[in-house]
């Protein structure tokens, strides 16, 4: 176990040596992740961990991969996707061209879920899905569109609850315990590294999805990210957050109107 002071030292050193700033991350979760890594890699004391992080770029990569949470699933919170399907996409569909941004996309399960919705709404051909994450390793997985086959039963149930009518299995090819999703889904996806802590706006979007990412940030960093989303949204664009996240305490809320009870807000000006 590392203590609070050691965690702050690690945060400072990581910034100094690698330019990644974890200073705005919520400490409770970050400390748990760092502790987990400390135990996983069998360090006997903190300075041993620190020097490895400083001097081995490969190990630093591993650290970023392990301390950022990459748990995600397809059609997580199916009723959220149902609202997208029934209320948001019909409106976006009237545009000649639709841009999406999945901020903090992890291994891409939500991006593929969105592509399925778009395909079924016959909108994928005029859509572009930007998907970004701080972690290049998960982006590689996302690009491939290969997910564990054992998850498909649950994803298929989620898909149906979200209002999906097709046989979910026709979207992927099963092989050696993995499900590979078709290139007809991924051809409109653009994957890229982007750090919500330090990088800026890079395009204008009609829907930004950032679900269960802000929970790892403190209030100040949340505010930064929300302003970035505000800047990056077109007029009347939508912002979607996780089921327990909100813009309620942010100054940007004045420019947004919430859709019913869902964690979807529409920019009003």
């Amino acid at each position: 176990m590392i203590d609070d002071r050691e965690l702050e030292v690690l945060i400072n050193e990581v910034y100094e040596y690698h330019g990644f700033d974890f200073g705005g991350y919520s400490r409770a979760s970050l400390k748990r992740r760092v502790d987990r890594l400390y135990q996983l890699d069998g360090f006997s004391n903190f300075s041993e961990m620190l020097s490895k992080v400083r001097s081995e770029p490969g190990y630093f990569k591993r650290m970023v991969e392990e301390i950022t949470v990459n748990v995600t699933e397809m059609f997580r919170d199916p009723l959220f996707y149902k609202v997208l399907r029934e209320e948001v996409l019909p409106i976006l569909g009237t545009k000649p061209f639709i841009r999406f941004w999945h901020a903090g996309c992890s291994s891409g399960e939500e991006v593929y879920s969105m592509a399925i919705l778009l395909k079924e709404a016959n909108l994928l051909h005029k859509s572009l899905l930007y998907a970004t994450d701080i972690n290049p390793i998960v982006l590689d997985t996302a690009k491939k569109g290969i997910f564990p086959l054992q998850m498909m039963k649950q994803y298929s149930e989620n898909y149906m609850t979200s209002g999906g009518k097709k046989d979910f299995s026709h979207y992927y090819t099963a092989n050696y315990g993995f499900a590979k999703f078709g290139e007809d889904l991924s051809e409109k996806m653009v994957f890229s590294e982007h750090n919500l802590v330090s990088d800026g706006s890079f395009n204008e979007f009609d829907l930004i999805l950032c679900r269960n990412v802000l929970i790892y940030f403190d209030k100040d960093l949340q505010e930064r990210a929300l302003c970035l989303f505000d800047e990056s949204l077109a007029k009347l664009g939508y912002l979607a957050l996780g089921t327990k996240e909100t813009i309620k305490f942010s100054p940007i809320q004045n420019r947004f109107r919430q859709l019913n009870r869902e964690k979807i807000w529409r920019k009003t000006e």
């Binding site: 919520s26 400490r27 409770a28 979760s29 748990r32 992740r33 949470v69 748990v71 269960n212 929970i215 790892y216 996780g242 327990k244």
Partner: peptide, 14 residues
């Protein structure tokens, strides 16, 4: 999870 400033936070890790 619990933060130092008497605030609750959430986490979707494993």
């Amino acid at each position: 999870l619990f933060e130092k400033n008497d605030v609750l936070s959430l986490d979707i890790s494993e």
